[in-house]
């Protein structure tokens, strides 16, 4: 399956969850979603989206938080798997898009390509549930159930690049962060 197919499937099932994205997913997700609860992190600390999602999940326990991370980004900060499992927010779902390359830098293979197993790492870290998908039909079928489960949940999707040029449009992250804060604060009143 391709990443654009996975993102369209996520957009189809997503309701009012917060969605945090980074790297190539952040460049592509806006084509499928323009929600006030989206935050597309371009230019923020590399590898640190799951920690940001942990903070949002703890701050907003009544709202699901979906973190759409890449495999290269995940490798930069594996310790956060333990931090998430330790704090154990039940509303956090961490997705890792596995394309086994550094796509935005030209397609170099990531370390551990074909050997490292992210779901096994998450399970070992203590996540409540882990899932692995390589088939779009199975992902489409299981996603509604996953969105209802108590987490923290870890999901890997083996998704090839979409084959489309990635957007080079700058994302104003400062304004976007404040907009998300405003939306989340307002919705908690």
């Amino acid at each position: 399956m391709r990443r654009d197919e996975v993102l369209q499937t996520l957009a189809k099932h997503r309701t009012n969850e917060v969605v945090l994205t980074t790297m190539s997913v952040a460049q592509e997700w806006p084509a499928y979603s323009q929600s006030e609860f989206d935050f597309n992190a371009i230019g923020t600390g590399m590898g640190h989206l799951p920690d940001m999602a942990l903070g949002v999940a703890v701050a907003c326990p009544d709202r699901k938080v979906l973190c759409l991370n890449g495999d290269g980004s995940m490798l930069m900060n594996l310790g956060v798997l333990v931090s998430i499992a330790n704090t154990a927010p039940t509303n956090l779902i961490l997705f890792v898009f596995e394309n086994e390359i550094y796509e935005v830098t030209g397609g170099q293979p990531i370390p551990g390509r074909g050997r490292a197993n992210f779901a096994a790492m998450a399970q070992g870290a203590g996540f409540a549930h882990t899932f692995e998908f390589s088939d779009l039909t199975a992902f489409d079928k299981e996603l509604p159930t996953i969105l209802r489960l108590e987490g923290p949940i870890f999901v890997t999707v083996q998704a090839a690049p979409s084959g489309k040029p990635l957007s080079t449009k700058a994302i104003p992250v400062r304004a976007a962060a404040r907009a998300l804060r405003d939306s989340l604060t307002r919705s908690q009143r």
């Binding site: 940001m52 703890v58 330790n86």
Partner: peptide
């Protein structure tokens, strides 16, 4: 006070940013 331990200090900044985006004061 909520108490969130992390494994490496860099995580602390991102967790704090997420808490702030969620309306908290870390």
């Amino acid at each position: 006070l909520g108490f969130i331990p992390v494994c490496r200090e860099g995580e602390a900044f991102a967790v704090a940013a997420g808490l702030w985006m969620g309306g908290k004061t870390p």
